[in-house]
Design a protein around this nucleic acid. Structure first.
Lengths: 200, 200
DNA sequence: TATATAATCAAATCATGATTTGATTAATTG
DNA sequence: CAATTAATCAAATCATGATTTGATTATATA
């Protein structure tokens, strides 16, 4: 029967992480299959064994996985209605930022390569849906806060784009081992945006 | 002597704008010289007459020009010490955002292709310097506000990255003809970030 | 251990696209 | 209008890199 994967054989996840890293450094179009393969000690051709769909499929899985992981964390917080809107908002930002900094390469791919995947008509639909679903989470909690009277009356779509921009930008500048940890940065950012909304 | 450029001949600026647009849609690596050429009714080879340095040079000029134009607008405001820090901060954001929305393609290039130009060792140095100079402008006015006691004591580098992220992100989502004008968005964003800083 | 299947590789294929080259066609200026 | 330089083009070059193909090697299970 089918053999169980050997311990030393590379698995899909290794390849996806390696790919995210190469994408961060060179961009999707600039990344060679050989570059990705080299990161996991394979040759370019071997990658097709794991991802028959080639480079495009690899990108798709990097982005879809990455977004899903963050979405799930944020969703759990936003939908916890036992907490006040301000607290849900704060915790969501914190979790989100920590998640991005914990995995800069994927965060960077989410920033830089979303455009690439949207070029592909097949992926386009499903990816846009994923993204809208995510953005809606933040919009919901902001609206809750406004209705409750604890948040200023801001333009919610614009505010959420500003927030997401600030967060996504981490994928551009954050590096492990910098002056602040991901958690410290997450705290700061949650503070910033909460102050922007709170009526004092 | 040298001939004066004919009226109907394409000029460098046309090409740079066309290039920025193609870069926005396909990314630097995905953009073909032929794509850029087609936008101005030329063939790929003809572009080398205007830009002997090829695609790389075109990217360099798009980014350097784009950044310089925005920098100059923001600089004039930040350095106008007849205004209070809060007012300088507000006007700088406004001018910056209006400038980005007035030229989405260049704004998008500044977001997506900075990484590309940084790969090039020659450009790297000069471009990083430009960018630091720009970021320093915002940091200065924020520090002024803190020292004056009108702004909260935030972590200035992190705050400015959050701000720049929110602004740069416009290059990703803003499109002409949307629900709000560039000016309206600029106002909103200035409000957001001012509220994040102001001690009420 | 024998066999089936997974993993992998090296060497083709195939396409694509940047850049160069050698004319050819304007437009300017004396 | 002749001479000169600018703009442009079509057709080579040249390189690069994704993907395919046909073995080869490793490992698990019967």
């Amino acid at each position: 029967m089918a053999r169980k994967p050997a311990d030393q054989a590379v698995n899909r996840q290794d390849i996806l992480l390696a790919a995210a890293d190469v994408f961060r450094r060179k961009g999707f179009h600039g990344a060679k299959m050989a570059d990705i393969a080299a990161e996991v000690d394979l040759t370019a051709g071997s990658l097709y064994h794991h991802f028959p769909g080639g480079k495009q499929q690899i990108l798709h899985e990097v982005l879809a996985n990455g977004l899903d992981i963050v979405t799930e964390k944020v969703r759990a917080i936003i939908e916890d209605t036992t907490l006040a809107p301000a607290e849900r908002f704060r915790r969501a930002i914190y979790a989100h930022v920590v998640s991005l900094t914990a995995n800069v390469s994927v965060a960077a791919a989410l920033v830089f390569e979303t455009r690439t995947i949207l070029e592909d008509d097949i992926e386009r639909e499903s990816y846009l849906a994923r993204r809208d679903r995510f953005e809606a989470l933040y919009q919901r909690v902001i609206e809750d806060g406004i209705e409750t009277g604890v948040f200023r009356t801001v333009d919610v779509p614009i505010f959420s784009k500003a927030l997401l921009g600030a967060q996504n930008w981490l994928g551009v500048w954050y590096r492990d081992g910098g002056r602040l940890t991901g958690e410290q940065i997450a705290n700061e950012m949650a503070e910033f945006f909460l102050n922007a909304l709170l009526i004092c």
